[in-house]
Simulated scan of single mutants.
Amino acid sequence: MGALHHIILDTDIGSDVDDALALALILGSPEARLLGITTVYGDTLLRARLARRFGKLAGQEIPVHHGLEQPMSGREVWWPGHEGSLHDGLENEPVEEEDAIRYLTRQVSERPGEIDVIAIGPLTNIAAALESDPAFAHNVRHLWIMGGGFGMDEAEHNFRSDDQAAKIVFQSELNITVTGLEVTRKVEMRRDQLALIAAAGPLGQALDADIRQWWAFWNEEWNVPHDPITVLTLLRPELFTFSESGTVMIGGEGEFAGQSTFTPSPTGTARLVATIDTEAVADEISSRIVNAGTLQLHDADVQ
Rank of each mutant, 00 (worst) to 15 (best):
E244A: 11
E76F: 01
W215N: 00
A32Y: 02
M152A: 07
A274K: 13
P112W: 06
A128R: 14
G254Y: 05
N139G: 07
V178N: 03
T230V: 09
H66P: 10
D208W: 01
I197P: 06
R160W: 05
D283Q: 15
R160P: 02
F240N: 00
D18T: 05
L235V: 13
E114S: 13
A48G: 10
K167V: 14
F54L: 12
A51I: 01
G147P: 00
V224P: 00
G149V: 01
L104E: 13
S245H: 12
L90P: 00
E93F: 09
D227R: 12
E220I: 05
G251Q: 12
E69Y: 05
F170I: 10
E131Q: 15
A119L: 02
G148E: 03
V183N: 01
L272D: 03
R185S: 10
R236F: 08
E131W: 06
E93T: 03
T233H: 11
V140L: 05
A48H: 01
A100L: 06
R191S: 15
D299G: 10
P63F: 02
A292V: 07
E244S: 14
S109M: 07
D10R: 01
D162P: 00
G67V: 08
E253V: 10
I13W: 00
S243M: 08
A22H: 04
A209H: 00
L27T: 11
A24F: 08
D153G: 04
R47G: 01
G55H: 01
N139L: 08
H6Q: 09
A32M: 10
L272W: 00
